[in-house]
Simulated scan of single mutants.
Amino acid sequence: MTKHTLGTYPHMLGFEQLERLLERTAKTGNEGYPPFNIEQTSDFSYRITLAVAGFGEEDLSITVEDRQLVIRGRQGDDSEGRVFLHRGIAARQFQRSFVLADGVEVGEAAMENGLLHVDLTRAKPETVVQTIQIKKG
Rank of each mutant, 00 (worst) to 15 (best):
Q17P: 09
R20P: 06
R24E: 10
T25H: 11
T25N: 07
K27I: 06
E31M: 05
F36E: 00
I38Y: 14
E39G: 14
Q40L: 11
T41W: 11
T41L: 07
F44S: 03
S45R: 13
R47I: 09
A51W: 04
A53R: 02
A53N: 03
G54W: 05
F55I: 01
G56W: 14
E57L: 15
D59L: 04
L60K: 02
S61I: 01
S61F: 01
I62A: 10
I62V: 09
T63E: 06
Q68I: 03
Q68Y: 06
Q68F: 12
L69H: 07
I71H: 03
R72F: 03
G73M: 06
R74H: 07
Q75C: 10
Q75N: 09
G76A: 06
D77M: 10
D78N: 14
D78Q: 09
D78I: 14
D78A: 13
R82L: 08
F84Q: 04
H86D: 12
H86L: 12
R87Q: 07
R87I: 01
R87W: 02
I89K: 04
A91E: 12
R92F: 04
R92Y: 07
Q93K: 02
Q93L: 00
F94V: 05
V99C: 07
G103T: 08
V104Q: 11
A109I: 04
A109R: 15
A109P: 12
E112W: 15
N113A: 09
V118I: 14
R122N: 08
A123W: 02
A123Q: 06
A123M: 02
K124A: 11
K124C: 11
K124T: 05
Q130H: 02
Q130R: 00
Q130F: 07
T131C: 03
I132K: 12
I132A: 10
